Amino acid sequence: MTGDLTAGEPRAPRRTRWVVVVRLAAVLLFLLGCWNVWDGISALARGGFVVADADRVLLLEVTKWGWVLLALGVVELAAAAALLRGAGWARVVAVLVAGFNGIVQLAFLVAYPVGAVLILVLSALIVWAVVRHGHEVGG
């Protein structure tokens, strides 16, 4: 048996330094998941409505959003852990939940402009890193 032992076998994706960026995106997704779980639990405990001010009304039933944020946070935590391990499904879920989280933050721009923009930017970075370089982490 002489020759190349790897002949005919599929090649593993080439790993570059961008793997670090994808892992950082997974850590950021984990932090966003923790944030959403915390916000969800506090919203469920607090209840009521959020109103920004008389000129710009943002009427939000907090308990319903609490359940949405709690579920979103749990999915983000699971996707972040799986993304660190290189699961292919986690890349899809990470892009979906980070994208959804970024879009949801548009509703909170009136009430919490700095926090909403920060989370929107983090969500965009997660989506970019996973879409552009996520295949390099996968196995």
Rank of each mutant, 00 (worst) to 15 (best):
S42R: 14
A129I: 02
G66T: 09
L109P: 01
L72T: 04
D39N: 11
V121E: 15
A81D: 02
M1C: 09
F100P: 00
R15T: 09
A79K: 05
L70E: 10
E9W: 14
D4W: 09
G102N: 11
L125H: 02
L118M: 13
L69R: 01
L96C: 11
V114H: 12
R15G: 07
G88T: 08
I41F: 04
V68Y: 06
A71K: 00
L5E: 03
A124T: 07
N36G: 11
K64R: 14
V37C: 13
A78R: 00
L70P: 04
G8N: 01
E76Y: 04
L32E: 07
V110P: 03
H135P: 00
V93E: 09
P10M: 07
V62Q: 12
H133L: 02
R132L: 15
I41K: 01
V22Y: 00
A82Q: 11
L29H: 03
T63K: 04
D55L: 14
R17W: 10
L44E: 05
P10N: 10
F108E: 06
G139Y: 12
L125E: 08
L106E: 01
L69Y: 03
G86P: 02
K64D: 12
A45Y: 11
D55Y: 08
P113I: 04
V21T: 13
A80S: 10
G33R: 03
R91W: 02
A12D: 10
M1Y: 15
V50K: 08
V22L: 05
L28D: 08
V110H: 12
A129V: 07
L58T: 10
D4P: 09
A71G: 07
A107H: 14
A80G: 06
L28H: 02
G99F: 05
W67M: 12
V97P: 04
L24K: 00
A129N: 06
N101M: 09
V95S: 07
V50S: 10
G99M: 10
H135I: 11
L77F: 10
G134I: 00
A80N: 07
P13I: 05
V22N: 00
E9L: 15
W128Y: 15
L28T: 10
R46Q: 14
A90E: 05
G134K: 01
